[in-house]
Design a protein around this nucleic acid. Structure first.
Lengths: 153, 153
DNA sequence: CCGGGTTGCGTGCACGTGCACACATCATTA
DNA sequence: TAATGATGTGTGCACGTGCACGCAACCCGG
């Protein structure tokens, strides 16, 4: 949201922290998405699905994918269509529930994800490594842990 | 992006910091946007434009608004249309440049922004105040300052 | 067995966004 | 002054997203 040089004396430190958080999240997201799209023609939303699939051994249902990630179920369904069209994932009917469909990475999908993940690390390093030290990283992780511990979500 | 309980041992602390950052930014943005939309029928993108206008005395050109905020120029143009239709902003032709148009809050716009900003603070307090202390806030601000000091943007 | 409520999945529709373009106006140089 | 490039603004178009719905399959009580 708000940009760097805002002279808002009336804003509390919490407000500044919030605006900076949204700004940083949006900026870094755009940067990584741009790198992924340019080099691998892989939008960040696709990458996010593949990220979650890469750490699961068994196929994952779209509903669970929608709950675990920041994507809606309809978005997961359409991203799965696109990934399947490229042969990066496959839909496996659940043996116990005829309604449910499990999504899993194909071998090509695992290779593509590995390459894209390298790109992500590279793009991230350009921003993080030179500007933040270990204490900053640890502070961020501590804040995320506190926020994620929130009851209502 | 990535959700809370990810068991990714291979990821570095920087990766965790990044995923947490995107998650926190998206989640808090959605929460504030939801509160603003429910109570004031005011999307966060509209609020962002009004936020910037509220700290400027003179009318601001759409191009500058697009550069200062996280919105594109076309988005600024359309948001301005919507805000103008509700009488919250007005377009003032530049006296020196016939191409340029200055956007400024109306009196009703200032009142609406003040109310919406109160809602924003309230929604934010529900998340921040109970979970983060002053040290956390200060740490976040320090990180944003470092990131914003980046040369290439 | 069977009927009603629930769950899982995918899709039509409306809406917001980015990109490229059209148009008008300014700046600059001959 | 006249002409060429640059700048400011708004818009058509394609695309991605959320919401509500339809459909099929499951569960469960009668």
């Amino acid at each position: 949201m708000a940009h760097a040089n805002l002279n808002l004396d009336g804003l509390t430190p919490r407000d500044h922290a919030f605006y900076g958080l949204v700004w940083a999240g949006t900026t870094l997201t755009a940067r990584v998405d741009q790198a992924l799209t340019r080099r691998h023609d892989l939008p960040l939303s696709w990458f996010e699905v593949m990220l979650w699939l890469s750490v699961q051994q068994e196929p994952v249902a779209p509903s669970e994918l929608g709950a675990r990630t920041l994507l809606s179920r309809s978005q997961v369904s359409r991203v799965a269509d696109s990934l399947q069209a490229r042969g990066l994932v496959e839909r496996i009917p659940s043996p116990t529930d005829a309604r449910s469909v499990g999504i899993a990475l194909t071998e090509a999908g695992r290779r593509t994800y590995a390459e894209a993940d390298a790109t992500r690390r590279e793009a991230l390093a350009e921003v993080f490594d030179d500007l933040l030290d270990d204490a900053d990283i640890a502070a961020l992780e501590a804040v995320w842990a506190k926020l994620k511990a929130r009851p209502k979500g």
